[in-house]
């Protein structure tokens, strides 16, 4: 097995909106190492979710290729799970039934129950196993969907703004949990986020995208040892780097002001 688990090779994606071809992604190339934590960051509509949809084969690329463990993506890979922007739970199933729904039938029933139980605990939803989504708060629903993704034990986990709907306190808790899971399971994670601090706190590399068309503007390496101190000088310096990459040159002065 090579060190590269996911290879994105000169990826291009056009959408056709009202007979007009819109170039959403252009010439995206990225090699993701096994066990790496990558964040995708960029303005709204720049194509972050589209990249994840291409990796899961929900969309086909216009040109270019995606390889998982050297195999071109032709369908949804069993190595990949995804946490969507919205929790996408089945409203008629309880929390534990939702988590079990996507698990492989090859796993014996009793083992499946064990795994569900373990993941309910992991996301701190003990006591809510039998609750249906409408009885859970937005943040709790998202935690069920996180448990669902983790319970399938993927090699690559895609996260599309997974904590966007959570309050600041729960979000930081979930970041800690994600980090623990990542360290323990060695899952390769690719996360879309709007939160620069979150990206710096978690990632090995931060991929900064620009919009229209979406191209990779910059890749910021984060080599600080974990757990990272969000108020350290090194952390601030990286934040500054990401900010500068995110915003256009002419607004530099404004950015300086904010930093």
């Amino acid at each position: 097995m090579s060190d590269t688990i996911l290879k994105i090779d000169h990826l291009k994606k056009d959408f056709i909106i009202k007979d007009q071809t819109v170039e959403v992604l252009k010439d995206i190339s990225l090699d993701v190492r096994r066990g790496e934590f990558i964040s995708l960051i960029g303005s709204s509509g720049c194509g972050k979710s589209t990249i994840l949809k291409l990796i899961t084969n929900l969309e086909d690329p216009t040109s270019g290729e995606i390889l998982i463990d050297g195999e071109p993506v032709k369908g949804p890979s069993e190595k990949v799970s995804m946490i969507f922007q919205e929790s996408r739970l089945f409203p008629w199933l309880t929390a534990e039934e939702n988590i079990e729904f996507t698990m492989s039938k090859k796993i014996p029933v009793n083992d499946r129950r064990e795994i569900v139980k373990k993941h309910i605990e992991l996301v701190g939803l003990n006591g809510f196993e039998k609750a249906v989504p409408s009885q859970l708060s937005g943040g709790m629903q998202q935690r069920v969907s996180i448990a669902r993704a983790l319970a399938t034990n993927p090699e690559i986990l895609l996260l599309d703004e997974p904590f966007g709907a959570l309050d600041a306190f729960t979000r930081i808790n979930m970041q800690e949990e994600t980090l623990k899971i990542w360290e323990k399971e060695k899952t390769t994670m690719i996360m879309v986020t709007h939160d620069i601090d979150e990206a710096i706190y978690l990632s090995d590399r931060i991929v900064v995208l620009s919009a229209k068309p979406g191209v990779i503007k910059d890749i910021v390496n984060v080599t600080l040892p974990r757990p990272r101190d969000r108020s350290s000088l090194d952390f601030m310096n990286i934040r500054r780097k990401v900010m500068l990459a995110l915003y256009d040159k002419e607004s530099d002065r404004n950015i300086e002001y904010f930093i």
């Binding site: 084969n57 949804p76 799970s81 969507f84 089945f90």
Partner: peptide, 24 residues
Amino acid sequence: SKLLELAYVYRIKSTKTVFRIILP
């Protein structure tokens, strides 16, 4: 359609999709 996307990503079989997602 978002539930169907989810089923696709998680490779849910067609029969399961019909009886446990579409029918309900």
